[in-house]
């Protein structure tokens, strides 16, 4: 300690301190920041399991080394996020040919999904699986999220994320039951007909704001039963089949009294 104290006034001291501070900040950043390199750090064992799983379940369509075929795109560079999204929502392995791969109960468990993601990520750099922090709705701003959602997503997914139709049988699904992680990944990878919203379009914070807005929607509607969040058509249907039907029933009942 003495030696250190003695050299406190050394000419190089500020530089050393600065270097140390930078190192500390860098270390903290490395620990907390999302790193696209994360997938690369997955163990080679994982990648090996992933490769085997891939060859058994996916290679028929995507080709033996995921280079793509006539019926399915190449997966080189789509990143762990794309695989995690597609497999954990049950879209992949795709079962049936249709306008777009339908979501269904996932066929792979968590470890298998992680292994597949690690394998595909090892083929080329791409978006990584987001950290819990990145998708934490409590850190997002729902108001910003609503504004972003309104201009970027509502035209396909409806104002509250109830889903909507696209051309030729394609559809933007309801987001009511989608996990926060999958929401983030969908924006990063643009599944099927959906465009990619990279950080230049919607920043990582913006994505978290959107998640915060969608989480707000789960709290229910202030006005009572939200009727599926589908808007005026659903309301009109209820006005006829519930409101008017009950009133006509009442008229029949009142009309029948007395005579």
């Amino acid at each position: 300690m003495k030696a250190l104290a003695a050299r406190r006034h050394h000419r190089a001291a500020p530089v050393v301190l600065l270097l140390m501070a930078l190192l500390a900040v860098g270390g903290v950043y490395a620990a907390f920041a999302p790193s696209p390199a994360q997938a690369a750090t997955a163990s080679t064992a994982d990648i090996e399991t992933g490769k085997k799983l891939f060859q058994a379940n996916c290679a028929t369509c995507h080709g033996p080394s995921a280079e793509g075929t006539d019926i399915a795109p190449s997966l080189v560079g789509v990143g762990a996020a794309a695989v995690d999204f597609q497999v954990s929502t049950g879209r992949m392995p795709m079962a049936m040919d249709g306008p777009q791969a339908p979501a269904k109960p996932p066929q792979m468990n968590e470890e298998q999904t992680a292994a597949l993601a690690a394998y595909v990520a090892s083929l080329g750099a791409g978006p990584a699986i987001p950290t819990d922090d990145q998708v934490d709705p409590t850190q997002g701003d729902a108001a910003e999220g609503m504004a972003l959602f309104r201009t970027n997503c509502a035209m396909c997914h409806n104002a509250v994320g109830a889903g909507g139709a696209l051309s030729s049988g394609k559809a933007a699904p309801s987001l009511m039951n989608t996990s926060d992680r999958n929401i983030f990944q969908a924006m990063e990878t643009g599944p099927g007909p959906m465009p990619v919203f990279n950080d230049a379009v919607i920043t990582a914070e913006g994505k978290r704001d959107i998640i915060a807005f969608l989480t707000e929607q789960d709290k229910g509607s202030a006005g009572g039963n939200p009727l599926g969040g589908l808007g005026p058509v659903a309301e009109g249907l209820w006005a006829w089949v519930l409101g008017l039907a009950v009133m006509i029933g009442g008229a029949v009942w009142i009309g029948a009294k007395s005579s």
């Binding site: 104002a159 005026p232 309301e235 009109g236």
Partner: peptide, 18 residues
């Protein structure tokens, strides 16, 4: 849910009353 009016966005399921 719809938000304040702004001429650019249109959401899916935009319909008038029945």
């Amino acid at each position: 849910n719809y938000g304040p009016y702004d001429p650019s966005p249109v959401s899916a399921g935009a319909q008038p009353d029945w």
